[in-house]
Computed example of a mutant assay.
Amino acid sequence: MTAVSNGNALLIQVLILLLGALSLVFSWWAARAASPVIAIFGRWIRWFFIASFAAGLLQVTGWTGYGFGTLLIVALLLFFVLETGYNWLAISALSKSELPLFPKFEINERGDEWPSNPAFIKLKGWLRQSGFQKRQALLSMLGETLLMRVSVYENEEQTLRLHILFLPNARGNTASCFTFYSTTQSGEAIVTDNIFLPFGGFYPESWEVERQPWIRSIDRLLQRHRARIDAKGEALMPFLTEPIEQINADQRTVEQLNRELGFLHTPAEEAEQGRLTTAGRARIWQEVWTLAYLGLSLKYS
């Protein structure tokens, strides 16, 4: 085995301890802040910590004759294989579970349920200052289990809808995602959001969907949406249907399209093979990784 100087060995040990401490800090920080951006950095740190720890352990025990650098690369690749394999199994389980891929929404009889923390108080203030008015509070349920809450707002001209998604995490904190939605006179839908949940499927050709998970500021996301509207150069149509009707109709449209394009199995095939086709699972599998580590979504067209 290649000898390693005491100085290099100490440096490697310090590096591993530092990565371990940073991994714990970022894990706690991401959960507390409910921030997908912080979580991305935390996953990279965790990846390098686990790989460094494994490489260091192999070198100290003398099981191989390779240097730390080579062992680190092998451990990084092995972690990638194991994690992506786990993701594939999780997606396969999702395909056969009762969890709806295109959930149906209903009116939230309790109205808006906003977490009482400074970030959401600031968001409420921004909505008032920007002229957005509340339209409806919606939720999606699976039996007695709450899947998602959505608050829908509109601008004064009723040409721009904002969907605020409230997503609880395992630590009891709540993350928020925003979707801006407008329709042009020619019937095209312009959608700009910062959702960080994988979808992997397809949207209708008349929808121009842009996903920006890195943009967590609602003001910056609105600026991006308006820039896309200006680039389109068409007047916008006011919304004529209630949010709940539009959302549920859109869900049905997207589900049918993805069945036609081979993302979903037919109803007759679902019982035996699950809802997702192999191609559908592969697209979600790919997007799980790109969102988790790069903050990038797939092309949905």
Score class of each variant (00 low, 15 high):
2 T>P: 15
4 V>S: 15
5 S>V: 13
8 N>V: 14
8 N>R: 14
8 N>I: 07
11 L>V: 09
12 I>D: 03
14 V>A: 15
16 I>Y: 02
19 L>E: 09
24 L>C: 08
31 A>K: 04
38 I>Q: 05
38 I>D: 04
39 A>Q: 09
39 A>H: 05
43 R>Q: 02
43 R>H: 02
47 W>Y: 01
52 S>C: 03
52 S>A: 12
53 F>Y: 08
56 G>F: 04
61 T>K: 07
65 G>R: 10
66 Y>L: 09
74 V>H: 01
76 L>D: 07
77 L>F: 10
77 L>T: 04
86 Y>N: 05
99 L>R: 13
109 E>Y: 06
111 G>T: 02
116 S>G: 03
118 P>Q: 04
119 A>P: 07
122 K>H: 00
123 L>V: 07
123 L>R: 12
126 W>T: 04
127 L>Y: 05
130 S>T: 03
135 R>C: 02
140 S>R: 10
141 M>T: 02
142 L>A: 14
146 L>E: 08
146 L>H: 04
150 V>I: 10
158 Q>M: 02
159 T>E: 01
161 R>F: 11
163 H>N: 11
164 I>L: 13
164 I>Y: 08
165 L>F: 13
167 L>C: 00
172 G>S: 08
175 A>Q: 13
176 S>T: 10
179 T>V: 15
182 S>Y: 10
184 T>E: 14
188 E>T: 12
189 A>S: 15
193 D>R: 10
197 L>Y: 06
198 P>Y: 12
199 F>C: 02
201 G>Y: 01
204 P>V: 05
205 E>A: 15
206 S>N: 06
207 W>H: 06
209 V>K: 14
216 R>M: 01
216 R>Y: 00
217 S>T: 02
220 R>W: 03
223 Q>S: 12
223 Q>D: 14
226 R>A: 00
227 A>R: 14
230 D>E: 14
247 I>Q: 05
249 A>I: 04
251 Q>R: 02
253 T>R: 15
255 E>A: 11
257 L>H: 11
257 L>D: 13
257 L>N: 13
268 A>D: 12
270 E>S: 11
270 E>C: 03
273 Q>P: 10
275 R>L: 06
277 T>Y: 07
286 Q>N: 15
293 Y>L: 13
295 G>C: 08
295 G>N: 09
301 S>C: 04
